[in-house]
Every structure is written in structure tokens, then in C-alpha cells.
């Protein structure tokens, strides 16, 4: 019963938006080449689904996002943990991180093209850039933020430096690292539009850009909503993983 109530509550704002949207478009206040009405969006969705194009675009996008994201994870977590743990590494890497971090992934597009050519490598690279810094910085902060007293307790129980790292610092930073993964994935996913500008032939970002050029606003909306829904679904999954494996997160020691 409570679940139903929460579910209905969650629907209120979308329903309000849907109503406003319908009124604006069905009455012609906003022409369809600027914003399609909900019916057009449904038709566009149906067509994209039936022809299989939506499925191809979605899997195409997911492939490059997951590839870029996994590579970013594999590099950013160890690097972030290392920098958080070792002052030497921090001094070494900090300047270049601070310089590269503010550069938006879109700005890397010409480089991706030149270094990797066209295809999955270049696209995954853009996603990689998007995911990398949130994962790196969250891991770094998580390691630095481990309470000193936990490390001291481990030392008085006989832990060596490497044991402290593996048995205390890593588990203690896992909530922060997981948060970095969630944020990193989200941002990497958003970069798919930029990534697919490099001569992609399919993908949700590509779908949106193509349809925008052809003023197929129905397809644009379907593309946007699909990106939103997939992003939401994956973040939800990651949140559930966190709940299961880190039940103690956020609760005081």
C-alpha cells in the first residue's frame, strides 16, 4: 500500500509536465518543428522500435559507454587510491590533473579523431575522458578521508603498511569509490552525444543529432528520453549494488 502511494507521488510532476506539454503542442501554440506533441513522440517511438533502429542505437551507445567507462575505472581507481595514499604520487600527479580536469570532453573530439581515427576507439576515448575524473577524484578523496583513528587502530593490532592499505583503507573508501563510479558513469553517458559526433553511424546521440538536422523532432525526443531512461536504470542498479554490499554506508561507526 505504501509502495503504491510512493509510486503515485513520484508520478505527480511527470503528469503535470505531460499535461502542460500536451496543451502547448496540441493547441498549436508551439509548432511541431520546434516541439512535437506527445502523440507524435509515441508514433516516432513505435517506428524506431519496430524497425529495430532504437535497439541498434541503444546498444551502440551502451557499447561505447561501457567500454570507455570500464577503461576509465581500471585506470582511475588504482591511480586515485595511489594518489590519496602516497604524498609522493600526489605531488607528482596533482598539477597535471588540475590542468586537464576542467577541459570539457567535447574539446577532446579533434584529438580523439587524430589519435584514434574513427570508430569505437575514438568514441570510447571521449567517454573515458568524461568518466575518468569523477572516478579519480572521488577515489582520491575517499582514501584521504579515511578516519586516521581507524588506521591507528589497525596499526596497534599489528598491521603492516600494505595490510593497512588493503584491509582498512580500501574497504573504508569503498563507499566513496562507488559514488565516483556512479557519477563517472552518468557523466560518461552524457558524453555520448559528443563522442558520436566523431563520425559515428549509430547511437542515441547520433540519432538525436541527425533527427535535429532533419527537424524530426519526434525522434529527437525519443532519443533524449531513451538516454534519460537508460541512465536512470543503470544508476538505480548501481545504487542497489551499493545497498547490498555496503549496508553500513552512511551510518555512524
Amino acid at each position: 500500500m505504501k509502495f503504491l502511494k510512493n509510486f503515485l507521488e513520484a508520478l505527480t510532476i511527470p503528469v503535470i509536465l505531460l499535461t502542460i506539454w500536451s496543451i502547448l503542442t496540441f493547441t498549436g501554440l508551439i509548432p511541431s518543428y520546434i516541439l512535437p506533441n506527445p502523440y507524435e513522440v509515441l508514433i516516432a517511438f513505435y517506428n524506431l522500435l519496430i524497425t529495430g533502429k532504437l535497439f541498434i542505437d541503444a546498444t551502440s551507445t551502451l557499447l561505447r559507454v561501457v567500454t570507455g567507462f570500464l577503461i576509465a575505472t581500471a585506470i582511475a581507481i588504482p591511480l586515485g587510491v595511489g594518489i590519496g595514499w602516497s604524498k609522493t604520487l600526489e605531488t607528482l600527479f596533482n598539477p597535471i590533473i588540475q590542468i586537464l580536469r576542467p577541459i570539457p570532453p567535447l574539446a577532446w573530439v579533434p584529438f580523439a579523431l587524430l589519435w584514434f581515427g574513427i570508430g569505437l576507439k575514438a568514441e570510447a576515448f571521449i567517454i573515458f575522458i568524461g568518466s575518468f575524473f569523477p572516478i579519480l577524484l572521488n577515489s582520491l578523496d575517499a582514501v584521504k578521508g579515511v578516519e586516521k583513528v581507524l588506521i591507528e587502530a589497525a596499526c596497534t593490532l599489528g598491521a603492516t603498511e600494505s595490510q593497512v592499505l588493503t584491509k582498512v583503507v580500501l574497504p573504508a573508501s569503498s563507499p566513496g569509490i562507488l559514488l565516483g563510479l556512479r557519477v563517472g558513469f552518468g557523466i560518461g553517458f552524457m558524453c555520448t552525444v559528443a563522442a558520436e559526433m566523431i563520425a559515428a553511424k549509430s547511437g542515441l546521440g547520433y540519432l538525436i543529432m541527425e533527427s535535429m538536422r532533419l527537424l524530426d523532432t519526434g525522434d529527437v525526443v525519443v532519443g533524449m528520453l531513451t538516454i534519460g531512461l537508460i541512465g536512470f536504470a543503470i544508476d538505480y542498479l548501481l545504487a542497489k549494488v551499493e545497498e547490498k554490499y555496503i549496508p553500513w554506508r552512511g551510518k555512524t561507526i
Binding site: 583513528v149 581507524l150 596497534t156 593490532l157 582498512v168 574497504p171 573504508a172 553500513w248 561507526i253
Partner: peptide, 13 residues
Amino acid sequence: RGFVFQQYTLFPW
């Protein structure tokens, strides 16, 4: 030399 701290230092995980 075992130590018991003033703060709670159990490993929460």
C-alpha cells in the same frame, strides 16, 4: 601494545 581509543574505532564494514 594493544590500544583502546576514546572514539569508536570498530571497522564498520
